[in-house]
Design a protein around this nucleic acid. Sequence first.
DNA 1: CTTGGAATGTCAACAACACTGACATAAACT
DNA 2: AGTTTATGTCAGTGTTGTTGACATTCCAAG
Lengths: 167, 167
Amino acid sequence: MPEGRTGQGYSGESLLFLTDEQLRQGIEAMFFAYRGFTADPDRILAEMSYGRAHHRAIHFINRSPGTTVNNLLSILGVTKQSLNRVLRTLIGDGLVISKVGELDKRERHLYLTEQGQALEATLSDAQRARMRAAYKDAGPEAVQGFKTVLEAMMDADMRRAYAKLRD
Amino acid sequence: MPEGRTGQGYSGESLLFLTDEQLRQGIEAMFFAYRGFTADPDRILAEMSYGRAHHRAIHFINRSPGTTVNNLLSILGVTKQSLNRVLRTLIGDGLVISKVGELDKRERHLYLTEQGQALEATLSDAQRARMRAAYKDAGPEAVQGFKTVLEAMMDADMRRAYAKLRD
DNA sequence: CTTGGAATGTCAACAACACTGACATAAACT
DNA sequence: AGTTTATGTCAGTGTTGTTGACATTCCAAG
């Protein structure tokens, strides 16, 4: 087997050599970049006794105010027990409120309180600052490519969830 | 304030509008894509009783055979206690061997056994298959942009570690 | 109106993976 | 000889995830 050469060889029209080495670089880039991606919010969250799970919940509640627990569950891809523990602390700390549904009273609709919005803004600002700097460094064409590859990397159901949020 | 517009406005020469909305899409793309990125190896690892930490150790030992514990530590960005726990199980299970350094006998140089290489290949193949598919979908220019943005997103020391691995 | 099932919440137990702090050993450096 | 470096290990703790079991509420179908 030719060293480092992928089984596919050429990829049809694009003349794209995809050596294992190139793919491995992409894998490592994802690993190191994700660390940077979460580093700033992580530092802020560590000061309060929150973690990434709290950040994610806050992010998506802010993104879709009034979302139900079930909806959040499918976006975050965790069990209800895991999410519930996080939501309980956020509700207890007055960052999130949960309103019983009017149409369907089983459902709980989630909203950020003012305090919750303030934390969301702090976390988002930190994360957006890094993203903005990276985008600016890389330039607009790179950004387009970045998003295209990331989208192609998602599972089908996550791609749907992602597209839905872009409406 | 103009809705969704970032405080910076234009970004100088590139005429790049970076709305909070665009940045948030990038953030969400990273979140969902990273899930896809780790999904396939995670499934394989779950069957044996290993986790992502084992995968990362195996990956970088394979990448740099004979690397020392300290070197691995700085790449992975965890504590020695955390890494040691993982290495102990991998050595115990015969996937990794640790050789006392010849020049400096304090150092332990890490290598994958044949069995370790086999697992590495299985995990890598799964992850590379997804990466290859994503690259093929997105095309070569997108891939270049993808890597550029990811690199810009890293912390400085991680960018160094990443560059070093590319030699 | 009763029953089945869906949505939610809660309790308990557990595992993976990270952390800190403390301590031990061996080897290298000064 | 004394200090620093590299590594390993033990104990304790916290966050985040998992399963499994069970209760409550309430819509909807029979």
